[in-house]
């Protein structure tokens, strides 16, 4: 069972999954970074992204990857509105009020989806769903490769925007110190709305990509949401590069743990890791690494 061949293929599969994990967690990290709000409603938008993709597929036979791109704009608008209409009103109250507000929003989205689409398992089967490539003796499912490539592209684009545009720099400045950002003339209010829009757009995008790999129901955002939490906590919460590290750590841990236990216990690993990470390493993997080096 534990041949090198096997272990390498498990590692490859894990890293391919990590790309998707990173995309679905990035939005959470951006929103957290800018306004220190844990966006629980992310789960709802992830699910909505998946169902919209299903709709595009049924109406126009649109490929999920194209659906992901199509989702960006409406989801950005939705996120912007959520910030303007809801979050802005409570963001100065205790942090728990924001959490509960977004939680309520998630409940509403989820149950509206249940009313519209019912609780049946849905899936999207494309022409390439069951195809795979054989590279160097390893069988790689085509869907995973595509998802990974698209995720990588999206992350690179995001990295460029955050690193080289005015908006991106303003956003990162707000993450570092909102007061100082305000002092140098950054409209942090606008950056917050933008961050919420961007985060939600990424959820919609990731939701589309998820349809290539998993079947889904209106409930399905929850487990992925918890995984996203695990990832950003592992990544150090406001460390954007940490998201990628966290995604890789989670995907690898999950995949290798399954070699030793039942597959149905896989999510326990993610949830357990979340609790442990929150308690013992609030600064994430990076901090742990820095600590052991000094």
């Amino acid at each position: 069972m534990f041949t090198t061949q096997n272990l390498v293929s498990v590692a490859i599969a894990a890293l391919l999954t990590a790309g998707l994990y990173a995309v679905m967690s990035y939005g959470l990290a951006i929103i957290y970074g800018v306004m220190k709000v844990i966006n629980v409603s992310n789960a709802g938008f992830l699910m909505l992204g998946a169902f919209m993709t299903l709709m595009y597929f049924q109406w126009w036979h649109l490929d999920p990857v194209a659906g992901a791109v199509l989702n960006l704009l409406p989801f950005f608008g939705a996120g912007w509105l959520v910030y303007k209409l809801l979050v802005r009103r409570v963001v100065s109250a205790r942090p728990i009020a924001t959490l509960l507000l977004l939680f309520a929003l998630w409940l509403v989205i989820q149950n509206v989806a249940l009313a519209i689409w019912g609780s049946d398992d849905q899936s999207i089967i494309t022409a390439y769903t069951y195809k795979s490539l054989i590279v160097g003796g390893f069988r790689l499912p085509l869907t995973r490769l595509i998802v990974f490539a698209v995720a990588l592209l999206a992350l690179s684009l995001l990295h460029f925007v955050l690193g080289h545009t005015y908006v991106g720099k303003a956003l990162r400045a707000t993450v570092q110190d909102p007061q100082a950002a305000l002092l140098v003339g950054i409209d942090t209010e606008r950056i917050s709305a933008l961050a919420f829009g961007l985060g939600t757009a990424l959820s919609g995008f990731a939701g589309s990509l998820l349809t290539l790999l998993f079947s889904f129901t209106p409930d399905f955002g929850g487990p992925f949401q918890l995984k996203s939490f695990t990832i950003i906590v592992l990544g150090g919460l406001e460390n954007f590069a940490g998201v990628t590290v966290g995604a890789a750590v989670l995907a690898l841990t999950e995949s290798f743990a399954v070699l030793f236990m039942r597959a149905s216990l896989q999510n326990v690993i993610a949830y357990g890791l979340l609790v442990v990470a929150l308690i013992v390493m609030p600064g994430g993997v990076a901090q742990l690494w820095a600590r052991t080096r000094s």
Partner: peptide, 25 residues
């Protein structure tokens, strides 16, 4: 004992993790 050391929302998130982990276990 460990999770109540977390502040506000982080405690809430940790409890979701614990609750769901228990259900699956």
């Amino acid at each position: 004992a460990p999770t109540l050391r977390l502040v506000g929302p982080y405690f809430s998130i940790a409890t979701i993790g614990v609750g769901e982990a228990m259900r699956i276990l």
